[in-house]
Design a protein around this nucleic acid. Sequence first.
RNA 1: GGAGGGAUACCCAAGAGGCUAAAGGGGGCAGACUGUAAAUCUGUUAGCGACGCUUUCGAAGGUUCGAAUCCUUCUCCCUCCA
Length: 406
Amino acid sequence: MKIYDELVARGLIAQVTDEEEIKQLINNGRATFYIGFDPTADSLHVGHFMALCLMKRLQMAGNKPVVLIGGGTAYVGDPSGRSDLRSMMTPEIIEHNSNCFKKQMEKFIDFGEGKAIMVNNADWLLKLNYVELLREVGTCFSVNNMLRAECYKQRMEKGLSFLEFNYMIMQSYDFYHLFQHYGCNMQFGGDDQWSNMLFGTELIRRKLGKDSYAMTITLLLNSEGNKMGKTAKGAVWLDPAKTTPYEFYQYWRNIDDADVLKCIRMLTFIPLEQIDAMDQWEGSQLNQAKEILAYELTKMIHGEDEAGKAKDTAHALFTGGTDTNMPATEITAGQLTDGVIGMVDLMVASGLTPSKSEARRLIQQGGVFIDDVKVDSIDTYITAEQLKTGVKVRKGKKTYHKAFLM
RNA sequence: GGAGGGAUACCCAAGAGGCUAAAGGGGGCAGACUGUAAAUCUGUUAGCGACGCUUUCGAAGGUUCGAAUCCUUCUCCCUCCA
């Protein structure tokens, strides 16, 4: 199966400008394509991961990826998919985030000689002169058309600042720049980028009279139509310091039935025939599929060792065994009073609850367990002896934490 | 620049001098049921030395025994006119 058909079969492609042409280009490894990543945080998240996977797949098929770090566009801020103004980032933060992105990407994409390149649009965008830019590309953009773009429509009611309105022009300019200087003839991105990307191809056509192509990746939505990779606490990060491998594993392990196969198809490199076989799975077998998904993804991001550990830990915890890999907190002697620590304080010390009030509430509702025995009073105390061997604190059904005394 | 409207907890949204730590919904968390899923039902959802105390209704002042509610100034947002 050719790469393009595989992408379609995996459900990765959302929209394309010229299907035949794009098919030809990528199937024959003749595309030089770019995907932009704005450094809005100090770690990549699941959304970026999809784009990187696509990049990897295309690279394996002989195409040349260009990773564009949006060090310049981050100064402006993309209004797409946002209902309010982004807070402006300082140059220092942008710089820092860009570096973090770089490091994480190098794990996925082979930046070897001639294989792929990484560029930063700060290198050309920040040098632009306002009036010169207006004269160079200003006539190529119709405000009427821009306002019709989906990404702005949503903002017409809430308000859209001129700063953000210009984001599209910056992104279009990037494509134009890369087309000229790096022979980049294709742009990929999330589906929310579609209008920004189209204006890029339009700019190239008007300025250079050449064709260029754009393709968007399906947004990873769950069965309820919300973006995946987000939790109440924020994004699911790829940086192990922000989302531990175990948490990462658990995120996928706990996914809805309805979303498992879709995720396996879109995110893993498991051969399609194998995935098609899983399509029939139901009930407890489908539960197995979640484990496969969680393991595969954790392996890709954190490596085989970490994935194995996460899996073992999960098995041990959920089947009642003991395991040393669960998140742990060290209690110091100073936190003890008369050789004991109150259950409420222990909850807070281990980060299981943000406040004592919440810890109390949780205990009163019967949601806290020590070594799998329900804690039935907020006046429960844990002794130094117990802590020396380590106690397993469980909050609810799924959150485990170990506390021990050094 | 002018005329109106608005800002309430994680989000949406009621409240218009004491009965309000603030209705309702969403989301989150926990319990029951389960397959570490979904759906459903129940509880809970500011903090703390906890039948009490402290902080919280955009910000700062003021009136009052008492303010999310009344007054003054300021900040931000929206709509209409220019």
